[in-house]
Amino acid sequence: ELSWTAEAEKMLGKVPFFVRKKVRKNTDNYAREIGEPVVTADVFRKAKEHLG
């Protein structure tokens, strides 16, 4: 699991709890794919757009 900024964690907190774990995993995987060592708010937004 990658490191997350406080802002990205806050955004994740707005995701319904029953899918939060999956969203975190998918976002981590997306960040790795694009070469990001940390999940930022920008990476979170891009993952959301990319993953739907």
Rank of each mutant, 00 (worst) to 15 (best):
F17M: 10
K21E: 15
R20Y: 04
V19T: 08
A47Y: 14
E9V: 11
P37Q: 11
T40I: 01
A31I: 02
D42G: 06
A31V: 03
T5H: 04
E33L: 13
N26G: 11
A8E: 01
L12Q: 01
V39K: 00
V19N: 13
N29K: 13
K22I: 13
V39Y: 00
P16V: 04
T5G: 03
D42Q: 08
G13A: 15
L51A: 10
F17G: 08
E1G: 13
V19W: 15
K22A: 13
E7K: 07
L2T: 07
V15F: 14
V39M: 02
V19E: 15
A8L: 00
E49S: 09
G52R: 11
N29V: 09
V19D: 15
H50V: 12
S3G: 09
N29F: 09
P37F: 12
H50P: 04
E36V: 12
R20E: 02
A6C: 07
L51H: 12
I34G: 04
K25W: 14
K21F: 10
K48M: 15
Y30P: 01
G35M: 06
T5S: 08
A8Q: 01
E9Q: 09
V43H: 02
R45Y: 07
M11H: 05
D28C: 05
E49H: 11
G35Q: 06
R24T: 02
A6P: 12
K25F: 13
L51N: 10
E7F: 04
F44T: 01
W4T: 00
R32G: 04
R20I: 04
G52Y: 09
T40V: 01
G52Q: 14
K22F: 12
K10H: 11
L12A: 02
T5Y: 02
K21Y: 11
E49Q: 13
S3W: 12
G13H: 13
K25S: 10
A47P: 01
E49V: 09
V23W: 10
T40P: 00
R20S: 03
S3Q: 14
V19S: 13
K46Q: 12
P16K: 05
E33R: 10
A6Q: 10
E9W: 12
V39E: 00
R32A: 06
D28I: 08
I34K: 08
A41G: 09
V38H: 06
D28A: 07
V38S: 06
E1R: 10
N29D: 14
A47Q: 04
E1S: 12
